[in-house]
């Protein structure tokens, strides 16, 4: 029996670049079921006219001056990288936009 949330899980896994095994998909879809059901009340609340709260603070216009700060030495930047070539991060061959 396929869960009604299975397509959503599959779509999200693709969007989130998470390879998920088929048997995991079913389990995750069941989790979706339970979690979203537990959260259902949220969707039934009347929120008309309420301004969204995007952060805990009402801050605005926090900016910095356009003044250079030192960049990292390249060795330090590249040290944690899984694969490095010639001062670049190296990844499997791809064409632009094809990821």
């Amino acid at each position: 029996m396929t869960n009604e949330n299975t397509p959503a899980v599959q779509k999200c896994a693709a969007l989130a670049r998470l390879q998920v095994e088929p048997e995991q998909v079913e389990r995750l879809a069941e989790d979706f079921d339970r979690i979203l059901d537990a959260f259902r009340g949220l969707t039934e609340l009347d929120v008309s006219g309420v301004k969204p709260m995007t952060g805990a603070l009402d801050l605005q216009d926090i900016v910095r001056a356009d003044e250079p700060r030192p960049s990292l030495e390249r060795e330090r930047l590249l040290a944690p990288a899984p694969k490095v070539e010639d001062g670049f991060f190296a990844v499997p061959k791809t064409v632009d936009g094809d990821a």
């Binding site: 949220l42 969707t43 609340l45 929120v47 309420v50 301004k51 969204p52 709260m53 995007t54």
Partner: peptide, 8 residues
């Protein structure tokens, strides 16, 4: 919705 309920 969650953002709005957060304000509430």
């Amino acid at each position: 919705r969650a953002q709005r309920v957060r304000r509430l």
